[in-house]
């Protein structure tokens, strides 16, 4: 961990010093040892703020459309964050030439609330690190080794793309999960509807899922429009359904599966589960994966004459 961290710092320093970029976006230590916070570094002497550890959760690509519009920006990015960057480039939200990617091989990110469930007292934690077969938690009372499957985020447990797909420089080794966590969506339609009714009824409409999503960059979101009014502001299950269903549709074929929406949700809605389901449908029908640099155009911005035909009679 420290080796990679040092390399990130050196590289950030190098690109800032030789003027390759004006700014480097990365993670800095959070207010507590089990969190990190986004940091924007514009002076080479500040690079020691940068860190790399199992709680570097934020997908920093969310800042790019605004910050890298007309200047060169360096970004420290996990493989999922890089897929976001690729999607943003494909959708013309940022220019490849404006982004300098410090790519990282990933071994999965920790969900701090799972540490608590695994019996760790959060106030005792002093540091976290990856270990050979799990996560090492250093506490005031010594070290503790936890199984990845117990403390990683769900999205990480389902992630097999842990090598950066696009980068200018790459550090760190990817570690693949021993098994891929299956989706938990029930099979029967009635049960699915029940599941989502329960999930969406919790929504408080804080829009954290939308704001944290690198692909939700619309200037005015449909949910904020007054005329036409797509969905009312009140947090009732039906309107929440309308918001989440429409958002899922807008992200179909675009979501790169970073799971940030689910991480930030204060009421634990399993949004990423829906996104995964849609991504799989996209993969099956179009052999397309969002955020893959080999794709030429966004899925819904193009077509093939022999595409799957949804018409029921023809």
């Amino acid at each position: 961990m420290f080796e990679v961290e040092n390399k990130i710092r050196q590289e950030a320093k190098r690109v800032l010093e030789n003027g390759l970029v004006e700014l480097v976006i990365g993670w800095a230590p959070g207010s507590v040892p089990f969190r990190t916070t986004p940091v924007f570094i514009d002076r080479p002497e500040d690079v020691d703020k940068l860190v790399w550890n199992p709680v570097c959760a934020n997908n920093l690509a969310v800042y790019l459309p605004k910050i890298a519009k007309d200047r060169k920006v360096g970004i420290v990015a996990k493989p999922c964050d890089i897929r976001s960057i690729v999607a943003l480039i494909q959708e013309n939200q940022v220019k490849r030439d404006n982004i300098y990617i410090i790519g990282l091989g990933c071994a999965g990110v920790v969900d701090p609330s799972r540490l608590e469930l695994a019996g760790v007292r959060l106030s005792d934690v002093t540091a976290l690190d990856w270990a050979a077969d799990g996560i090492k938690v250093i506490t005031l009372n010594g070290e503790q080794l936890l199984k990845s499957t117990d403390v990683h985020r769900d999205m990480c447990l389902a992630c097999t793309k842990r090598e950066p797909a696009l980068f200018d420089v790459k550090f760190g080794e990817a570690v693949l999960p021993s098994e891929v966590k299956p989706r938990e969506l029930p099979e029967l339609p009635e049960e699915r509807q029940k599941y989502w009714s329960e999930q969406f009824s919790k929504c408080i409409r804080c829009y954290a899922c939308r704001q944290i999503c690198p692909n939700c960059y619309c200037e005015v979101c449909f949910a904020d429009r007054v005329e036409p009014k797509w969905t009312a502001k009140k947090a009732v299950p039906e309107e929440n359904w309308m918001f989440h269903a429409t958002r899922a549709m807008h992200l179909a074929g675009r979501c790169i599966q970073c799971g940030e929406c689910e991480r930030v949700c204060p009421v634990g809605i399993r949004i990423a589960e829906l996104m995964r389901e849609m991504a799989e449908a996209v993969k099956n029908k179009y052999d397309y994966e969002a955020g893959d640099p080999n794709e030429e155009a966004p899925l819904l911005g193009t077509f093939r004459e022999n595409d799957v035909d949804p018409a029921q009679h023809s």
């Binding site: 986004p38 408080i204 944290i212 009312a232 502001k233 009140k234 930030v264």
Partner: peptide
């Protein structure tokens, strides 16, 4: 402001934040 993403988690979960909107449907 540079890092804030502009969501409503802090105020919607806050026990004392009281701002509201009134709408007619």
């Amino acid at each position: 402001a540079q890092k804030c993403i502009g969501c409503g988690v802090c105020s919607y979960m806050c026990p004392s934040c009281s701002c509201f909107d009134i709408q007619d449907e």
